[in-house]
Write a protein that binds this DNA or RNA. Structure first.
Lengths: 125, 125
DNA sequence: CATCTGTTATAACATATATATAACAGTTGA
DNA sequence: TCAACTGTTATATATATGTTATAACAGATG
């Protein structure tokens, strides 16, 4: 398991959301691949110092969004199978607000493209 | 006031967040400009059918983020003065997750740039 | 058979969201 | 001056969400 989980208890992001995002970013960075097993809910909960149910909620959300499947033998397993229509419309809604804020900040379209390139470099693409 | 406020009571977004986002997008679309007065908390609350305090929370958040100032005479007024350091680091955090999801969806960097261009067109360019 | 999976149930508590009623100080315009 | 309007603050209530806690269950593993 190449993933390193780090919980920020001061963050305004929910703990389960932090876990979800770290796993999704881990997939994009190719630190984990299809079929890789995630830590068990109890293991991960102990490792980062949170409750089992909080980890379980993260896994449940990831399962609903299509990043994870459950194998009775291996437990939670990476298995990317995303509903693109739904995911894309959600991404657009978020992007609209994000770009509006960027525009208010005075960022040009070119600067935004640069920002995208900078961040996207982290993901093999 | 060119802004039209529409509340989706079925949305998972908080009501005050919906108001914030619509105002920020309105600024980016240049539907409102520096110095324009926003509706009073009571007017807007009545207009969209929510509580005064929910509107007040939206205005308070917008004030903290630097999109609005309060003029004792005019009430809440558009006045874009954003802490770029803070706003940019927040934007990057959001973008990182958004791009990871896009990468998992199989979107190429070029397709993402296209998406940005499409959405950014709504804001004067 | 003991031990590990995810899952479910129940309970409890803190925080966030939203509403309701009420009041206050400053500003405006009649 | 005075009524009507600002944002702001205080208090209370209701509901939803997030998090923890304890416990149990069925299926798979070795």
């Amino acid at each position: 398991m190449d993933l390193v989980f780090e919980i920020d208890f001061q963050s305004d992001e929910a703990l389960y959301t932090q876990l979800c995002n770290q796993i999704i970013i881990g997939i994009a960075k190719e630190m984990v691949h299809e079929g890789d097993a995630l830590p068990s809910v109890r293991q991960l909960a102990d490792a980062v110092g949170i409750n089992m149910h909080t980890v379980n909620k993260a896994y449940t959300v990831l399962k609903q969004e299509g990043y994870v499947k459950v194998d009775r033998r291996k437990g939670a397993v990476i298995a990317v199978d995303i509903n693109k229509l739904h995911a894309l419309s959600e991404a657009k809604r978020d992007l609209r607000v994000l770009l509006a804020k960027a525009s208010c900040m005075g960022l040009s379209k070119e600067e935004i493209h640069g920002l995208i390139d900078e961040l996207y470099e982290e993901y093999g693409g």
